[in-house]
Design a protein around this nucleic acid. Structure first.
Length: 492
RNA sequence: CGGGACGUAGCGCAGCCCGGUAGCGCACACGUCUGGGGGGCGUGGGGUCGCAAGUUCAAAUCUUGUCGUCCCGACCA
């Protein structure tokens, strides 16, 4: 037998780890809390990155790159931001090693090479970027400044999980500067829409757009908008955030501009980001006990072709047909892999590509050649059927689109089935314990109540949905008056 | 940082209690029969048992220390 995957029912966490590792997305590394993203996983990330990058550019943003290190004095300039991240910063204190006189062949930190000022390894780049923006912005004519960077960041997490929370992760962070609050808020919401668009239309992942409560807000932000997704175990996952930073960073870094009337004012800021965590979301939202199920629009391999043959003569005939199909599919922009490797039997390959989540598999053997058909199997439903070889390329193209849509609908249905509403505390707890999912409930709006609810139920306010209907009610915990329901869930 | 496990072949593990020739499965190489759902048979290569000290005639095994990883919790994209 080959690679065994723990079932979701048996151990959801282990199932997730199995998929990531056995699906060749990533591996543990020699560094605590850090993972190696393997070629297949990185190809997936590249696809996601390319789509997002185009979306950013289409909305007027440019890429740039800022340093990995942030001098401590800059890092601490925006107090709330610094405070929020202080507990999880890696800090560089020295710049040299030397041979250890007491331990042959070993190195030690050279105490004489202590830095005068420590360097913080960026957990996020607001500080280094805003210290730079000070020099870039003088006039309203320099605004808006719309910058994105693709980078790695480090957050020294106590407990890590592949893709969902690693000490180092890859992400993009947009940092924009605007002349007015209205414009900055519009930018914040625009990028939230971009994220939601990407999640839903490319990742087939339905998300809820909303705004965070004060407790869950990004350190240093006035408002944090987010997209929240639901995983198959009923837990929520924050899939992306977009922050309205007000003038906090402009004030901390003294970034002012002259308006048309030559009056000086601080600029208004946003920042927004999504990370490799999205890969974790993808895995947990769609996959099954046989392995990954990747949405066609971002799958590294969309179609795999497996030949079934006896002897070189049959192989030659199959090759001839397949190579023509491969050529046509590639011309249509479909990524296809013809796996004619001789070191694995067809059955092994079937299982392997199911594990890797390849959306469509085509098998072709002597029997098919005679009948002028191929066998097409779709990963999401595992349905198989014989399809005429004539026009197979169009058939596959349509099937890929159908799978994409079908995956989205399935995830959407799951979320609909796990969306609850209650006014009763006991039922609130019972829903979280038995069904999971999002529970819509009244909340009195105070941080104290939110903390208490978290303590008692392990659920947090995921968001206050955008365009949330206003309705008077009583707080689920305290019974105090409330003006609207908010979405609670247990979350990653 | 608290609690719990584990470091033995590329991977997964047994052996340790009771010290004495380092083993199994998968993977890998070669041959052969195979090939429509994780193949069969045969042959073969691969290890300073995480590291360091100690006890002993003798340590994968006992003792001490150390490093690392994973899992559960608090913190968090």
């Amino acid at each position: 037998m080959g690679k065994e995957i723990t079932s979701r029912e048996q151990d959801y966490s282990q199932w997730y780890n199995d998929l990531v590792i056995k699906g060749s997305l990533a591996d543990y590394s020699a560094v605590r809390g850090c993972m190696v993203i393997k070629p297949y996983g990185f190809a997936l990330w590249e696809n996601m990155r390319d789509v997002l990058d185009k979306m950013f550019k289409d909305t007027g943003h440019q890429n740039a790159y800022f340093p990995l290190f942030v001098p401590k004095s800059l890092f601490e300039a925006e107090e709330k931001n610094a405070e929020g991240f202080a507990k999880e910063c890696a800090v560089v204190t020295h710049y040299r090693l030397k041979a250890d006189p007491n331990n042959k062949g070993k190195l030690m930190v050279d105490p004489e090479a202590k830095l005068e000022e420590e360097l913080v390894v960026r957990p996020t780049s607001e500080a280094i970027i805003w210290s730079t923006y000070k020099g870039w912005i003088q006039s309203y004519r320099d605004l808006p400044l719309l910058i994105n960077q693709w980078a790695n960041v480090v957050r020294w997490e106590m407990r890590t999980r592949l893709f969902l929370r690693t000490a180092e992760f890859l992400w993009q962070e947009g940092h924009t500067a605007h002349a007015t609050a209205i414009e900055a808020i519009a930018e914040t919401k625009q990028m939230l829409d971009v994220y939601a668009d990407f999640a839903e239309n490319w990742m087939a992942l339905p998300v809820i757009k909303g705004v965070k409560s004060a407790n869950e807000r990004f350190a240093g932000a006035e408002d944090t908008y987010c997209i929240e997704a639901l995983m198959q175990d009923g837990k929520a996952l924050q899939a992306g955030t977009s922050h309205f930073l007000g003038q906090n960073f402009a004030k901390a870094f003294d970034v002012k501009f002259s308006d048309k009337e030559n009056k000086l004012d601080y600029v208004w800021a946003t920042s927004w980001g999504v990370s490799t965590r999205l890969i974790g979301a993808l895995v947990m939202a769609h996959s099954d006990d046989d392995g990954l199920i990747l949405p066609p629009r971002i799958a590294p391999i969309q179609v795999v072709i497996v030949p079934i043959y006896k002897g070189d003569e049959q192989k030659g005939l199959i090759d001839e047909k397949v190579l023509a199909i491969v050529k046509n599919l590639k011309a249509m922009g479909i990524s296809v892999k013809y796996d004619d490797s001789d070191n694995a039997r067809p059955g092994w390959k079937f299982a392997e590509y199911e594990l890797k989540g390849v959306p469509v598999r085509m098998a072709i053997g002597a029997r098919d050649l005679q009948n002028n058909v191929v066998e097409i199997a779709r990963r999401d439903t595992k349905e198989k059927q014989s399809v005429a070889m004539e026009g197979i390329e169009d058939y596959i193209k349509n099937l890929l689109e159908e799978i994409q849509l079908s995956m989205y609908n399935k995830a959407k249905q799951f979320r609909t089935d796990h969306m609850f509403s209650t006014d009763n505390w006991d039922e609130f707890l019972q829903l979280l314990d038995t069904k999971g999912g999002f529970v819509s409930a009244h909340w009195d709006g105070t941080a104290e109540t939110e903390d208490k609810i978290k303590e008692l139920s392990k659920a947090t306010i995921r968001c206050i949905p955008l365009n949330n209907p206003q309705e008077p009610g009583k707080c689920i915990l305290t019974g105090n008056p409330s003006t609207q329901r908010v979405l609670f869930a247990r979350a990653y």
